[in-house]
Amino acid sequence: MNRNKFILGSLTLAVATLVAGTAFAQLTVKAKGPQKVALSDAIRANQISWLSDAPVEKIKGTAPNVKGNFVMDPANMKAMTGLITVPVKGMKTGNPIRDHHLAGKSWLDARKFPNITFKITKIAAARVSGKKANVKAVGVFTCHGVSKTITVPVEISWKEAGAKTKRVAGDWVKIKTAFAIKLADYKVAGKAGNIGREVGDTIQINATLYGHTVR
């Protein structure tokens, strides 16, 4: 009798979790069905910033000209996919010689590998509240010609089209993330002895990107 109760209780809990998980992955917005979202600098300059924190010095950098396209279904944020592309050549560190080195052969080799990309393939978990979703995005991060599957936390905010969004048509979407990558994972060797001393062996990446729905 107790065993049956336990099984029934477990099943109920599992079904409730499943239902809750589906229901909670839904944004409360008017848009229906899968929406194409494109990043747009007209909303705000899309820029990725990064930090190398090494014992000798901290190097702050930015990567402008970020491009990106996503497919998001507000009714099911777990179905999100997308691709973000960052050109290596425009990266800035505040020193033109260092920028040149960064894009050079011993570092990111912009001539051979002009872009860094992150392709979101699936959403592992989604927690949605109103017009905001916090998801764990699983995707393929490609840097320096090396691709690795990583999971990153992403916060998505949705703003429905209205009087304040007239300068760019469609609903607006903000995508925010922060994660770290290890240079060694992407076979970025740099100059001998640099990594771990002048350049951090891990690079902290922060991105706040703005886009809009397109038809």
Binding site: S49, E57, T62, K92, G94, N95, W172, K174
Partner: peptide, 26 residues
Amino acid sequence: MANQFKTLKVTMVEDDFGDKEEKKEW
């Protein structure tokens, strides 16, 4: 370690979503 010709200035601004976000400019 190297000459820094530009510095990344970070300011907090309110974006169109009503959130306080960092604005970074050289």
